[in-house]
Simulated scan of single mutants.
Amino acid sequence: MKNNFQVSTKLTQLGRNPNEQYGFVNCPTYRGSTVIFNTVSDIENDNAVFNYGTAGTPTIANLENAWSELAGAAGTVLSPSGLGAIALALFTTTKAGDHLLMPDSVYRPSRNFCNNMMIKYGVEVSYYDPLIGLDIETLIKPNTSTIFLESPGSQSFEIQDVPAIVSVAKKYGIKTIIDNTWATPLFFKAHEHGVDLSLEAGTKYLGGHSDLLMGVVSANKETWPALRATYDYMSMLPGAEDCFLALRGLRTMHLRLKEAEKRGLEMAHWLKDRPEILKVLHPALPDCQGHEIWKRDFTGSSGLFSVVLDPKYTHQNLANMLDNMSIFGLGFSWGGFESLIIPFDCSSYRTVTKWNPGGLTIRLQIGLEDMDDLKSDLAQGFNRLKN
């Protein structure tokens, strides 16, 4: 029945059942490790929905089931962080001796995990141009088991041709994983585009208030048993309070994302006309590289994007600007209520593509503050930039 509802309605219904909660609207927070069985037969035959705390709780199951329906997945598992979700996904699809393809634009902690952990356990890792599309077929080896995608790219915002890459993967029986944190299932339906595992940091838009850490991994029918087995082997689950907060964040997620989209686009257009800005890296802007693919595959954009400054500005100019912001905080992450800004430079760690945007770069997360106040804060920052 819920499949007939629009997404805003779905988000108010999923992951709760007042009939099982003494009429209370929300699921209670279950905390615990030990589960009591009624009989010897029950414990010998594992006759229980949850046999121990590491197998989950009703709170966790409510969030998993809600996310599965939202993502169009066969099943979902949770982890204590977004990077934990990346680890769960990669351990699901790789083994020693396998070859893994990673986009050169990938979230830097994902790169660090691959370069240190995956290689340590005998997985060969190669990086590829995120804009490669169908030509990724030239990089396939006999032992390639997984292609990882992230669209748009972390910080640099390249949009990948997901359907093209997935089509090559399916031709060779290769699993695909996507980091879908920027768009969420609300703006990009990864499984509908053929991706096997879709992950994200629920820390961001699912939580929505910068007060929890969480990772989410959903799987299609074919890959779900392997994902659940990996999760059960590792017992890497989040805490009860974080799951409760994530369920609460789920209710307003669509409203917040639509508002983030609106504010992000307004700010991107305002910045595009500023003389201090060389270019804006926002996939929803028509003149941004990858816009046509974004328009074809996505149904919206979020509140995170980057800008390239005019090349005349130095690192000291940028420090003058960012050190004294009144509203924008210097901090990582995104998706919360607060606006954030960070400088970044991909040139030191990219290995396949050259990062040369033409000037210094900053990434902005547009929060829920008054837009005129945010623009004034940036305008004052630009004045310091020019001193």
Rank of each mutant, 00 (worst) to 15 (best):
I327G: 09
V280N: 06
S154F: 14
A61D: 09
E20P: 00
G300E: 04
L322M: 13
E338Y: 10
G15T: 05
N180T: 07
P80D: 15
L237F: 11
R363K: 13
A268I: 10
V216T: 10
L250N: 03
L14P: 00
P275N: 01
H193A: 13
K2W: 05
E369F: 03
G56F: 10
Y313R: 10
L100P: 01
P109N: 14
T54V: 15
P283Y: 08
F244A: 02
V123Y: 02
I366L: 03
T146Y: 04
R363S: 10
R108P: 10
Q6Y: 07
Y205W: 12
K120Q: 11
I136N: 02
L364F: 10
F305E: 03
K10E: 04
H254F: 09
A229L: 15
T230M: 14
S376D: 10
E69D: 06
T29Q: 04
T59R: 06
P109C: 15
Q155P: 00
I132E: 01
L90S: 07
F91K: 08
L385N: 06
V195Q: 04
N180Q: 11
W334S: 07
F37P: 06
T230R: 07
T12Q: 11
N317A: 01
M253V: 05
C288M: 05
S198F: 11
E64Q: 15
T93C: 08
G97L: 05
I43G: 00
K386A: 11
A73H: 09
Q316Y: 11
Y172W: 08
L83V: 10
T314G: 03
A183F: 15
D377I: 12
M117E: 13
W224R: 08
P58K: 02
F157G: 00
K375N: 05
K95L: 08
L309A: 09
R248M: 07
P311A: 13
T29D: 02
L330I: 14
Q160V: 09
D370R: 09
Q13P: 00
F91W: 14
T203F: 01
I177V: 15
I341C: 00
N26G: 00
H315Q: 11
L364H: 01
F298W: 12
A260G: 12
D46E: 14
Y121N: 15
D310W: 02
Q160F: 02
A96Q: 12
L255S: 04
G381V: 08
L368K: 09
S333V: 13
D373T: 07
F37Y: 11
R248A: 07
T361Q: 13
F298L: 09
G239I: 06
I159C: 14
R251E: 15
G358Q: 07
A48H: 08
F50H: 12
G367C: 04
M1T: 13
C288Q: 12
L330K: 09
A240L: 04
S376A: 12
V49P: 00
S145G: 07
P18Q: 05
L213D: 02
G249K: 02
T184G: 13
F24R: 02
R256S: 12
L11C: 05
P357R: 09
T54H: 08
L330A: 07
E69P: 00
C243Q: 05
D129Q: 02
I36K: 14
L237E: 06
